[in-house]
């Protein structure tokens, strides 16, 4: 037998199910008070979710328009339920959702742009750490097998087929100022990989391009290779030059 608490739980679940139900949104034609009220909650949910996505994906919003974003939002609400109480945490799966839609067939770059924007959103909210200057003294140790580079927890090493960083920058301009020819060049069939490091500097997200070797180095650092292993693998790598950039750009947390 169900307890009164269970019954209350079920009734609250039932209201949520009605609000999230796409079918009810489309087919509920009755104009009684309950239906009118339900529609308000359904519209509120959609509008709030669209707004939440548009804040995280401003370039996607600009490129596809609010109507298409609403359509994606409606689908995303069924794939990825909001669950933390903070809309800022919701929407990570937009990129994979785009890959399942017709939009992707016509505009394959959108999935990568969405992925880039989500990373940017996460980097903007991440907690940056200060460099432990004293730990740098470990560089003078003779046995570098036990010395490991510690990177900022906000740092991400990414690869894209499209030049998403440039596409994103271009869309920071007013729509009227966007050079459509330049955009067309950026969106054409990709021929090379674009390697990127994304990180937080002075509390603001930053993006830099990487060479193939720089990217491989960072991936190995993140994989936990010791300094000894790194220097053995990257014989010609300019460690002191890299360290100075890493300190300046706040990639480095210290050495352990």
């Amino acid at each position: 037998m169900q307890s009164e608490l269970d019954i209350l739980c079920r009734r609250q679940e039932a209201l949520i199910a009605l609000i999230f139900s796409e079918q009810s949104m489309l087919e509920n034609k009755e104009e009684d008070q309950m239906s009118k009220g339900l529609k308000i909650y359904q519209n509120n949910l959609l509008m709030t979710a669209v707004r939440a996505l548009s804040l995280k994906y401003p370039v996607i919003d600009k490129m596809i328009g609010r109507e298409a974003l609403s359509g994606l939002t409606r689908k995303l609400l069924h794939i990825e339920l909001p669950a933390s109480g903070d809309w800022a945490d919701w929407g990570e799966q937009l990129s994979s959702l785009i890959m399942t839609t017709e939009l992707y067939d016509q505009h394959p770059y959108l999935a990568e742009i969405a992925s880039f924007e989500w990373c940017l959103h996460e980097t903007a909210r991440g907690v940056g750490t200060e460099l432990n200057v004293n730990a740098l003294a470990r560089l003078s140790e003779q046995n570098l097998k036990s010395v490991f580079i510690q990177l900022s927890k906000t740092l991400k090493v990414l690869s894209f087929h499209y030049p998403v960083d440039e596409i994103w920058m271009l869309h920071q301009l007013d729509e009227s100022q966007i050079d459509t020819n330049e955009l067309a060049v950026l969106l054409k069939e990709p021929i090379e990989l674009h390697r990127i490091v994304m990180y937080q500097r002075e509390a603001v997200p930053c993006v830099e391009r990487l060479t193939e070797q720089e990217q491989a180095w960072l991936i190995d650092v993140l994989a936990g290779l010791s300094l000894d292993q790194l220097l053995e693998k990257y014989v010609t790598f300019d460690l002191s030059g890299w360290l100075s950039v890493a300190i300046e750009e706040q990639w480095l947390e210290g050495l352990r």
Binding site: L8, I19, T48, P82, G85
Partner: peptide
């Protein structure tokens, strides 16, 4: 209320949903 379950998964309603004014609630 805001926290509940939908299809067996935890969900936050993203809105301020009304209560039953009952002893249980």
């Amino acid at each position: 209320f805001t926290w509940s379950n939908l299809n067996g998964n935890a969900v936050h309603a993203g809105d301020l949903l009304p209560l039953e004014f009952s002893q249980q609630n």
